[in-house]
Design a protein around this nucleic acid. Structure first.
Length: 281
DNA sequence: AACTCAGGCAACCGCGACGGG
DNA sequence: ACCCGTCGCGGTTGCCTGAGT
């Protein structure tokens, strides 16, 4: 059975989004929250398929997306998570809540691949899938190496340096792609600033948000009317005043394991630090 | 100034997973 | 248990822009 493409209908627009379409989509999501993408084109009158709407929101319009250059720490984290997880960009993106999986994927394909190749550290397809041909012993050996590298990178990437790492400083609460609360640097280039209209629209949104969430500013979402979408309900985690809100998902078995191992290897400071950030294991 | 080419990025496509009926 | 609709993800494409000639 061949499934027809979802966007194969007549009258479904493709290609770059216009500022007007962005405004329409943002307005709708502001009112109803993200989700039920199937209904979005019908309810908004947008000549776009549901997938296109979702993609536009998650990759471009969603609050909290940080655009622009990747920091060294982000880069390190991506490199080693890629070594560990392979091309599971969504999983990798969950560690970088301000970046979209598409952004990370693009950055990997356009910058890091090249860089690693030049360094000679990308001599074979990265990730577990690229190592299937190796003998089991070799594969395990390499996997262990990758794991160790990933642990080290995670440790480095989570090291808090307020001077050098803007990612971790002076953050503002907003939301991540997975619906968890996260932060955007107020100074970072904002999303969808293609027109003043969008800027104004979002400003209004923010103002409305600040009415219901005291102490917040700049880019920030508000609770949706229904309250059914957690993505619209900022809940800052930062309780220690470090200026860092860990906004990714709760640490998975992977991180727990990595961090446990780090402790075993006399890297207890990472564990301590993570506790400082209010991260639960 | 005009043209070519390569890089970067937004968007699309297709497949698999998942949940409801 | 099965079917169908929807969503999410990863791979790929194609357009735009800036650098080089």
């Amino acid at each position: 059975m061949v499934r027809p493409p979802c966007c194969d209908k007549e009258g479904v627009k493709k290609g770059p989004w216009t500022p007007e379409e962005d405004i329409t989509l943002v307005s709708y999501i502001q009112e109803h929250g993200p989700g039920n993408w199937r209904a979005v084109p019908a309810k908004t009158g947008l000549q776009r398929c549901s997938k296109s709407c979702r993609l536009r929101w998650t990759n471009y319009l969603r609050p909290g997306i940080k655009r622009g250059n990747f920091t060294d720490q982000e880069e390190k984290l991506i490199i080693h998570l890629q070594a560990l997880l392979g091309n599971r960009w969504a999983a990798i993106a969950s560690y970088l809540p301000e970046r979209t999986d598409n952004d990370i994927k693009n950055y990997w394909n356009t910058h890091l691949k090249k860089k690693l190749r030049q360094d000679g550290s990308l001599d074979c397809p990265a990730g577990p899938t690229g190592q299937r041909s190796a003998s089991k012993g070799q594969w395990e050996k390499r996997l262990q190496t990758d794991i160790n590298l990933a642990k080290q990178a995670l440790s480095e990437a989570l090291s808090f340096d307020p001077k050098s790492d803007k990612l971790l400083s002076n953050t503002t609460t907003t939301t991540s792609s997975n619906g968890e609360n996260c932060n955007a640097t107020p100074t970072s280039p904002f999303f969808a600033l293609t027109t003043d209209n969008i800027s104004k629209l979002l400003e209004q949104w923010n103002n409305k948000g600040s009415n219901s969430n005291s102490g917040s500013s700049s880019i920030e979402t508000e609770s949706s009317g229904s309250g059914s979408n957690s993505i619209m309900s900022p809940q800052p985690i930062d309780s220690v005043g470090l200026g860092l809100d860990y906004c990714g998902p709760e640490l998975s078995m992977l991180e727990s394991w990595l961090l446990d191992e780090s402790v075993d290897q006399d890297q207890g400071e990472l564990y301590d630090m993570s506790l400082d950030f209010g991260v639960q294991f």
